[in-house]
Write a protein that binds this DNA or RNA. Structure first.
Lengths: 212, 212, 212, 212
DNA sequence: AATGAATGAGCGTTCATTCAT
DNA sequence: TATGAATGAACGCTCATTCAT
């Protein structure tokens, strides 16, 4: 990327990425063409390609930019750690689930989920973001139940974050179940807290039966 | 749709939809062009368009075909109702989560999630499918906890199915957390069963505190 | 053409030509495709091509059919010969100019004028029709002014009919000068009658001056 | 239109319009495709579309260009006003009728007449041109017969210009009556001059009869 | 840093036509 | 007679990209 060498160029690069983001959110990846991005920010395709020599490069920069926003948000969530970890979990869950209703969140993630199945270049950035996300949750999990094993905490964080992502499709922006958001938040808090407090699972199916 | 009235034509229509499905799964919606579908099944674009006069019509037929498969699966799950509803829930969760690892499931859903944000024609079929999915879960929820209200059952079904969808992105085919599938299944069973058994939530945060 | 061997086939051929005519009038030659004609009369393109093996053949049949209608009209005009040839001229002019307002007349002729510049197969039918048209006028011209030469009568008929055709574009169906039709009729009657009565022209410009 | 801002681009845009005009004249509107125009001037369809983003835009530019030529011609005719208005009328009629024999005139107008019946976007430019055309004639009409009413002058101009257009089809380039052009000119001069000099028409049919 | 110009490939779609059934 | 099926070419158009200026 040629961006960022001079101030003017930095501004132009940002303008391009902003236009690209708007386009991606508004009309989906199928409509994300160099021409349309360029025309959205009033420059020529040739000029755009000076900043981002190929569409792939632009896409990568775009994803990193958006993901960076979420990473910063996760960092903020981590630092908002109150005294009571359960309250912190509630706060995080409430925040994250509520955020699903932002058009940006609702529209951005399905696009990258789909893309990442076919373009491995995208997978890495996404994985990194989800890693940071899980770390926030994992930290809280351990605070809530310090006796838990490292691996169990990892698994719980995976289970919790993955479950939350699933709600995007149902209670996201413009989705038919929007009004159920409070109920979803309540169930999430309830079930995840219980699950964390329970700690380790019973070892296997046989024991499960015996345990009953 | 001009789909085959002779046997030969029927076969061709099926061949087209199969090729389209393969292409969608393998390379994503961005690569799903009439020309590529046609060349995949060795016919000309003109001939393809004889069967599916527009890309939109083909896409609709394709989605309905795939979704039909899932609908039939849900129907099978419902009829596999054993004596013990908890065991049935376990079976369904195990089946559904395991199925996330099928390449078809892993790749198909993110594509339609993304599409449905921008093409409302797709939303309907998808909603219908998820409705049937939720009904299967809701039925089991009520069997497990007959005292539960209609609305709570609905909410629980929404919460459970949405959560499950989220795992697609993490333990699906080719995803880095595949090996965690058994753990995810265990946590799902554990937490969803508990949540269902608990029944109605306490009304709100204030009452929560008071109730304690 | 395979049409006309059996009654059923004749009907089908007529149905096709009627649909083709409607389409030509409504949407112009650019929209006159085999497929659209076929779908207009509820048959398949393959079946249409049984009656009219190629588009050119269909077009020729279509033009002949329409032109036949005008030929019959001209024949009727000729036979409506009253006692007074001047009155007959008035009647013919009034009829012909009024007919320009028929959508069929307004739309059909520009299409064939354009076509005949590039497809000589069309020119013949059109020439034949205009020949019959001129003959009607010529006959009246001679009746009005029997002293006139054969050639002058021919020229006058050409001048009159050509002039009339020109009004199609201005006072035809949907044209901005429709309401001027009565005035146009009056001027046509006035000037053509005078011109006919005047008889032979002065031979050339020099004589014109001398003649004065 | 992206028409050339550099000299090179300007030339290309002109080259495109010239090729388009040639093609329209030579082979008719049915053959006027982006691809054929592009290949006629040795560029790619993509490049052509850089200058004229859609076929409609190109067509509009093409018609305006051609019509502009005729508008300028009419302006020249107006300014060639000699002392004697009758002589000016003769000059104009001679020029206009003679011009019908130009292939461009013979072929262009039937195409746009046909087009304008189905594409309203074309009608406007054409109407404007004919308006200017009629104005030239109207001016001369008034000079020849100053006692004439405004409305009568308008009607006469309409009658004259419309009549002239009609000859396109019969004495135009390659038409069978070409050799009659001098005779047509003579009759046009004769009859139009007389008609103008006569002035207002007798009021209605009854008076016409009585008047006789 | 930015534009104008150009390419070549691909897109969805329509077309006249052919032919087995 | 009539349909269903298939072809191959062309259509208008958009695209990512390149490059001289």
């Amino acid at each position: 990327m040629n961006a960022g060498k001079y101030e003017k160029g930095q501004k132009a690069a940002i303008k391009i990425l902003d236009a690209a983001e708007d386009l991606l959110i508004d009309e989906g990846y199928q409509s994300l063409s160099i021409r349309r991005i360029a025309s959205r920010c009033g420059i020529t395709p040739g000029n755009l390609q000076y900043y981002f020599p190929s569409k792939g490069i632009l896409l990568e920069a775009l994803l990193n930019k958006i993901i960076q926003g979420y990473l910063e948000e996760f960092e903020r969530l981590r630092q908002d750690a109150g005294i009571d970890p359960v309250m912190q979990l509630k706060a995080v869950l409430t925040h994250v689930i509520t955020d699903l209703n932002n058009k940006r969140t609702t529209h951005f993630f399905p696009e990258v989920w789909a893309l990442s199945n076919h373009e491995s270049s995208i997978t890495n950035s996404l994985d990194e973001m989800y890693g940071a996300y899980r770390d926030v949750i994992k930290e809280i999990v351990i605070k809530i139940n310090p006796l838990i094993s490292e691996e169990r905490a990892t698994d719980l964080a995976l289970f919790i974050t993955a479950s939350l992502e699933g709600h995007t499709i149902f209670i996201g922006h413009g989705k038919p179940w929007c009004k159920k958001t409070p109920s979803i938040i309540e169930m999430a808090i309830e079930s995840f807290t219980d699950l964390i407090k329970k700690g380790e699972p019973v070892a296997d199916k046989f024991q499960q039966v015996v345990g009953d």
